[in-house]
Amino acid sequence: MRKVMLKLELEPEQADVAHVRRTHSLAASEIDAEFGVREVNAERHLYVVLVERSAAARLKGRKGVSGPYSSPRITAATKLDRSSLLQG
């Protein structure tokens, strides 16, 4: 199952996977280390991580944690079958 997004409030020096794992008692398998900890708002020190749904449920409501957030499928704005295209 695909991991879900959580938004975390962190000091910039805390914005790494090791710190997040330690602070929130996350197993290595529960956080996407390749994705890492990504800044989404510099002024408010907001970061996003990808975690397992079970971990997100555990962390939900903690101070400095919001989400989990939807990561729906997106599609090309223009999807066409080639057969539907006519010669111009």
């Binding site: 990504r38 990808l50 939807s70 729906p72 499928r73 997106i74 599609t75 090309a76």
Partner: peptide, 18 residues
């Protein structure tokens, strides 16, 4: 980011964040 063929030309929003 739209690398999936199931359904055609789709992807995931977290890849956009990435």
């Amino acid at each position: 980011v739209l690398l999936s063929n199931e359904p055609d030309l789709s992807g995931w929003l977290d890849d956009v964040v990435r």
